[in-house]
Amino acid sequence: TCNCGQEAVLLTVRKEGPNRGRQFFKCNGGSCNFFLWADS
């Protein structure tokens, strides 16, 4: 659950770079700036 109470979504980094393939949680509604690496 993110900061605004919505269910956070699990996404994967697709951009080229050191974090490519890494998963993270983000706010589903985009109404808050919630971000969390899945492996932390």
Rank of each mutant, 00 (worst) to 15 (best):
T1M: 15
S40P: 09
R14T: 12
F25M: 10
N19A: 04
A8P: 15
R20P: 08
N33L: 00
C27A: 05
N3L: 07
C27L: 00
F34L: 01
N19G: 03
L36K: 15
R22G: 03
D39E: 11
R20W: 07
F34V: 01
L36S: 15
R22P: 02
S31G: 12
R22N: 04
T12K: 06
C27M: 01
L10R: 11
D39A: 04
D39G: 08
C2F: 01
V9L: 15
G5K: 08
L10I: 08
Q6R: 14
R20H: 15
T12Q: 08
G5L: 02
G29D: 13
P18V: 10
S31R: 14
K26G: 13
S31M: 11
T12Y: 06
R22L: 07
W37R: 03
S31E: 15
D39L: 00
R22M: 02
L10E: 10
G30V: 03
L36M: 13
N33A: 11
V9Q: 12
G5R: 04
R22K: 13
G17R: 02
G21I: 01
L10V: 06
L10T: 12
L36Y: 07
K26V: 07
T12E: 01
P18W: 01
L11C: 09
F25K: 05
D39T: 07
C27E: 03
N28S: 11
L36W: 11
C4R: 00
N3G: 01
N33S: 12
P18L: 06
K26C: 11
Q23G: 09
R14L: 11
L36E: 13
V9C: 09
T12R: 05
T1S: 10
G17N: 04
W37G: 04
C27R: 00
N28W: 14
G5A: 05
C32G: 00
A8W: 06
F35A: 03
N28I: 15
G5C: 04
F35W: 08
D39C: 09
C27T: 00
K26S: 13
L10A: 07
L11R: 14
R14M: 14
C4V: 00
L10S: 06
G30Q: 08
A8L: 08
L10C: 15
D39Q: 02
N28T: 12
E16P: 09
G30P: 06
Q23H: 14
G5V: 01
W37K: 07
F35G: 03
G21A: 06
G5Q: 08
T12V: 04
S31W: 07
S31I: 09
F34E: 02
S31T: 15
E16T: 11
C32S: 06
R14W: 11
R14C: 10
A38L: 07
G17I: 08
E16V: 04
L10G: 04
A38D: 06
L11Q: 14
R14K: 15
G30E: 11
R14Q: 13
N28V: 11
T12A: 02
R22A: 05
V9S: 09
L10M: 09
T12P: 03
L36V: 08
W37V: 09
R14Y: 12
Q23W: 03
W37C: 01
G5S: 05
E16Y: 05
R22Q: 02
N28A: 14
F25R: 05
G21R: 02
G29V: 12
K15V: 03
L36A: 14
V9G: 06
D39R: 01
E16C: 06
K26R: 13
Q6V: 06
V9P: 08
S31K: 15
G29C: 09
R20E: 12
L11W: 12
R14G: 11
V9R: 10
G29R: 11
T12W: 01
C27H: 01
N28L: 09
F35T: 03
G29A: 15
K15C: 06
S31C: 08
F34H: 05
E16A: 10
F25W: 11
P18H: 06
C32V: 00
G17V: 02
C2G: 02
L36H: 09
F35L: 04
N3R: 03
P18E: 05
C2S: 02
N19M: 14
R20Y: 13
L36F: 14
T12G: 01
R22S: 03
N19T: 11
Q23D: 13
K15M: 12
F35R: 05
R14S: 11
Q23R: 10
G30S: 07
N19D: 14
D39P: 10
P18M: 06
C32R: 00
W37A: 04
C4L: 00
F35K: 13
T1Q: 08
C32T: 01
W37P: 08
N19R: 01
G21V: 01
C32P: 00
G5E: 13
G21W: 00
R14E: 13
K15R: 15
R14N: 10
G30W: 07
P18R: 08
K15A: 07
E16R: 10
G17P: 00
N19E: 09
R20C: 03
S31D: 14
A8M: 10
G17A: 02
T1W: 00
N19H: 15
N19L: 09
W37L: 03
N28R: 15
C27G: 00
G21S: 04
V13S: 08
N33V: 01
F35P: 05
L11T: 13
F34R: 05
Q6A: 15
R22T: 05
G30A: 05
W37T: 04
E7P: 12
N3S: 13
P18A: 12
K15D: 14
K15N: 14
S31L: 10
L11G: 14
G17Q: 02
G17L: 02
G21N: 09
K26L: 07
S31Q: 14
A8F: 00
C32Q: 01
F35E: 04
G21L: 04
G21Q: 02
E7H: 11
F34Q: 05
E16S: 06
A8E: 02
R20L: 14
A38P: 02
K15E: 15
K15Y: 07
F35Q: 08
L11A: 13
E7S: 08
R14A: 13
G30L: 04
L11V: 14
K26A: 13
N33W: 03
L36R: 13
R20V: 09
N33T: 11
N33G: 12
N3D: 13
E16L: 08
A8S: 06
A8R: 03
G29P: 03
F35V: 06
V9E: 12
G17W: 02
K15T: 14
K15L: 06
K15G: 15
P18C: 04
K26P: 09
E16K: 12
Q6G: 10
R20D: 15
F25V: 04
R20G: 10
N19S: 10
E7R: 10
E16N: 12
T12C: 05
S31H: 15
R14P: 07
E16W: 10
C4A: 01
A38V: 07
E16G: 07
N19W: 04
R22W: 02
C27P: 02
K26M: 08
S31A: 12
K15F: 11
E7G: 09
G29L: 09
A8D: 00
G5M: 07
T12H: 05
T12S: 04
L11S: 13
N19V: 03
C4G: 00
A38G: 07
C27V: 00
F34K: 03
Q23T: 09
K15W: 11
L36G: 10
A8G: 05
L10K: 12
R14V: 12
D39M: 00
R20S: 10
G5H: 05
G29T: 06
